[in-house]
Amino acid sequence: MKQFGKVAVLAGGNSAEREVSLRSGAAVLQALCEQGVDAFLFDPAEQPLLELVSLNVNRAFIALHGRGGEDGQVQAVLEVLGIPYTGSGILACALTMDKSKTKALWHGMGLPTAAAATITASELSTVDCAALLARLGGKVMVKPAHEGSSIGMGMAHTADELAVALKEAARFDGDMLVETWLSGPEYTVAVLAGEALPAIKVQTPHAFYDYAAKYQDNTTQYICPAELSDEQEKQVRDLAVAAFKAVGCEGWGRVDMMMNSNGQLQLLELNTVPGMTAKSLVPMAAKQVGISFPALVLQILATTLDA
């Protein structure tokens, strides 16, 4: 695979998703090496990105999840260094890392997303939880606006529960997104080179799809094909591609959405560097259309050849 040159797989980092990122990076590295790509693991938490120049790196496969890797910072450094990289550019990464601003953009472009409010850390002591809860339908999901992997998330259907959930989310972020509760089901759609892969239906016995359901338990079910009619499958995929393009994403990513109580799809968030672990969803969707994990990794890396 000489056309790729020397490839640095960026994984680890300092975000709350470090451990997941290291697992993603290890899987990507193995797949690349098995296919003859000259690749190695590079952890920005252990060595400065500027060392990529002295290491004569030709391109980077970004497997960094969360802040410092999925928010445009690493992408900006790689741009300055002139090193092509996988995934979206600086602006799209910075935007989609902020769930509140992404929802606002989607809403402004007429794409469906649940009603929500953003509470800052400075407002915690004065927010009227009862009024906020009533405005958003009586039951809500609280999320740190700049975290992934369901870190710091909590649900609330009383004012006291909302106050607790906000304080928990504030441990991870200065902005907390409070979103109208969606009763499901939940779907996730991978987008690769502008095309949607088959939708995956996510079912968990947990109250919601939290960190344990994603990475620790074996009780979560990932159903692909997603038990949708052909028309519904097309609707889900078309919405994912529209959401992906609306924020300027490129290369690959994953769009998460749920249905509300009326059966209407509502966009949740967009991941510009989705997980690539044994339990990850993008490889599962790719497998449904005959793309093996090694082939998927190579296809993602190939998007850097035109950079």
Rank of each mutant, 00 (worst) to 15 (best):
E195K: 14
S229C: 07
L298E: 14
A104V: 12
A16G: 13
K2G: 15
I119D: 08
E147T: 11
V236H: 11
K167W: 08
E70A: 12
G68R: 02
S100W: 11
Q288P: 00
F244Q: 00
A190R: 08
C129G: 05
E123P: 07
H107F: 12
Y222K: 13
E17N: 00
V202P: 13
E195Q: 15
F4T: 10
D71Y: 05
I62A: 06
F61G: 07
M284P: 08
V191L: 05
T120N: 13
D238L: 07
V57S: 11
G82W: 09
K201D: 09
C224F: 05
M257T: 12
P185K: 05
G290R: 03
T304F: 13
S292F: 10
D230A: 14
L301A: 02
A31L: 12
G69D: 03
L124N: 06
A116R: 06
E231F: 01
G148Q: 06
V178R: 03
L52V: 03
Y211Q: 10
S292T: 14
N218P: 03
V247Q: 00
A193S: 15
T204L: 00
A116Y: 15
K103Q: 10
S24V: 11
A165P: 00
L177N: 12
E269W: 00
G13R: 04
V178P: 08
F4H: 14
A39E: 06
C93F: 04
Y211R: 10
L265R: 00
L95N: 03
V247D: 00
L298Q: 15
L239K: 01
P283A: 03
A114S: 10
A8I: 05
Q75L: 09
H146R: 14
F40K: 04
I291V: 13
V140H: 04
